[in-house]
Design a protein around this nucleic acid. Sequence first.
RNA 1: UGGGGUGUAGCCAAGCGGUAAGGCAGCGGGUUUUGGUCUCGCCAUCCGAGGGUUCGAAUCCUUCCGCCCCAGCCA
Length: 767
Amino acid sequence: MGDDNISEIKGKDFLRQIINEHIKTGKYDGKVITRFPPEPNGYLHIGHAKSICINFGIAKDYPGGICHLRMDDSDPTKESYEYVNSIKQDVKWIGFDWGDKLFFASDYFEKLYEYAEFLIKKGKAYVCSLSESEIREYRGTVTEPGKPSPYRNRSVEENLDLFRRMKAGEFKDSEHVLRAKIDMSNPNMKMRDPLLYRIRHVEHYRQGNKWCIYPLYDFTHCLSDAMEGITHSICTLEFENNRELYDWILDECEIKEPRPHQYEFARLNINYTVMSKRRLLELVEKKYVSGWDDPRMPTISGLRRRGVTPEALRSFCENAGIAKANSIVDIAQLEYSIRDDLNKKVPRVLAVLRPLKIVIENYSEHHEEMLDASYYPHDVPLEGARKVPFSREIYIEKDDFMENPSKGFYRLSPGEEVRLRHAYIIKCERVIKNNAGEIIELRCSYDPTTKSGEENSEKKVKGIIHWVSIPHSQNVEVRLYDRLFNVEHPETIDDGFNEDSFKILSNCYVEPAVAKSSPGSRFQFERLGYFYLDPIPYQECRLVFNRIVTLRDSWTKISAEKPEKFEKTEKQIKPQPQEKSEFDMSELPLEVKTKLDKYLKNYDIHKEEALTIAKDETLADFYEQTLSEYNNPKGVAGIIAGEMARELKEKQPKQLAFTPKELGELVKLIDDEVISVKIAREVFSFMIKGEGKPSEIVEKRGLKQITDPSELGIVIDTVIKANPENVEAYKAGKTKLFGFFTGQVMKESGGRAKPELLNELLKKKLN
RNA sequence: UGGGGUGUAGCCAAGCGGUAAGGCAGCGGGUUUUGGUCUCGCCAUCCGAGGGUUCGAAUCCUUCCGCCCCAGCCA
């Protein structure tokens, strides 16, 4: 209930929380400038879509927020305009606009070069002439420190000369590199004199042959952010280790605050598919799929081609959430987002995918009629209708007939009735088979009084099926797409590749209204799913529909057959072995052990606390000093092992803002029942800030605890009166609510209620 | 046996010392001329495990365990 929620932005993912804080404190003067920085060396996929939604979404959420689109194109060997164009198209399609904020890291090469010279002159960068493999060797491993390059101590003059000659093209590829001079034994591998520039005698797709030295990511990215005035540089988790370098470079280049800072979130993963550029490329190159825009691909172009809407994609990204824990989102979540979007906007039509012919014997041969059919069900608030032709011969879906119906089958079977959607109730009279015993045709009768919308149409039947009139229908092709893999977490593209992920059905029929529709239209084929009229022209002007997603289907779940469904592989839950790990005291240094023994024996404090204090010299000294001021070993240990340990862990202040004597006083206040332990913590937090003696703080801030039963009783009554339902629920047996009441009273009293008294009184009043 | 992250239901995910949000999936009921949609209900005595502090801990302290990332002159 603060007064500060005006600037608060809806959604409280940790990124927006950080930004909210910056806005509150005015760190960037209210500005929010993010960026989406793809490398134009491949197609964007749904994982990028999440990043796009985050970066552009955040910019959109904050007044005046801006998101740049920056091509991170500092590796000339991989990048091309083909990719920058597809990236631009994809970002636009997802629904974001970068306005005039399209940038290229390669445009900063000149400026970047100047920064490099600046670092050299500062003695913070050097030219290293080790070979590629030597560099690797000198770097060490994750467990062993690296060793300095023999070229590490070249003079500034030599470095400058060499670097300029690198630029001038005097050396071959890989002959020299420019490295930052940081620390070859840094536990963070990224800080072991990372490479800044490499020589590449290669044409850059934008810069041509202007350069033969190219900056690397870590050098390019942070400085590009700085040059563009980015405030929040948001990237994925694998760059966490790079953050230290990001800050180092900006520090050494003397980019002053307010300046960009990097924040990381977990990248999107989805089950039953692959997401890495490498795997996706493999699928394309080995022809597992038809291309980057194969409708099964999790690429943006694939999803677009399949017929997924940008809205669905965005809502999927939003629902997936932003956090730092690696996770794998269920593809059902994507399917849900797609259905949820399409359900609200797409017309329902009739189409038969696997036709079974029906002749309605009592329907006159030369007769036909046009039936009224709404495009939308009653619960979709859209208007629109068309006429559907009906005649003696129709197609129904093969699946909608069973000669020997299983239990719960509501559709057509011999002697049974079913309603034809928007039309009549028919009854199956005869089944006609070919010589092979396959059903090729059904003979039915219809009840003329049961036409939809008319009087007798109330007659109830168990099932409703879709159909098309044979003479009026148009033959189309339908392409069925399914998940790419049968296994939840494929490790290679051969690991459970779903051979049935693509099926072509060429003997499909749609009603006339659909045949007339324009490319790129989306429909719900009733009872089947959502379909997209592929806008790519096909030979003979043939209409090709892509299935975007099936409808939710509770029937196939019931029936034994599960044609295109996958059962999730059940995960066996293994019980965790209960290992009791005792701390091994024998390994402690003697000094610590001595202290520990003393605490345990003389002071009788708890082992955990004793250990915490004994292990830290500052804490231990402070502990002894405090005890000499106020002798309550247990009480003092509680504050020191808890509150003070945390404080030291976070800040490691050179000088403490309070004395042992004051800490002793604090404990005495607890002992004297002036304050509770909870309040003591609050007081302690003020002591850290140097607000003076505990007693003064308590006085000044009015923190003295309420020990007067009648005073506390009033507060309790207020709370009880304000929550009649909860009182009732409590009395009805929901005793868990006791905690709720305690909390409320605590809150009401500003935390000052004496806990024991509160509980005692509350119990009395509630019973 | 280095460093950096991270563990809340089958899958995501809120939660920031006071009744364990929400969504997906699942299960059951209602509505329905789509076995769709919509709607109602159920679904964590417990937050990776142990220990501690506290009247009260998913939240604070502590020990342990699992998983992810880092040894490209890729980004």
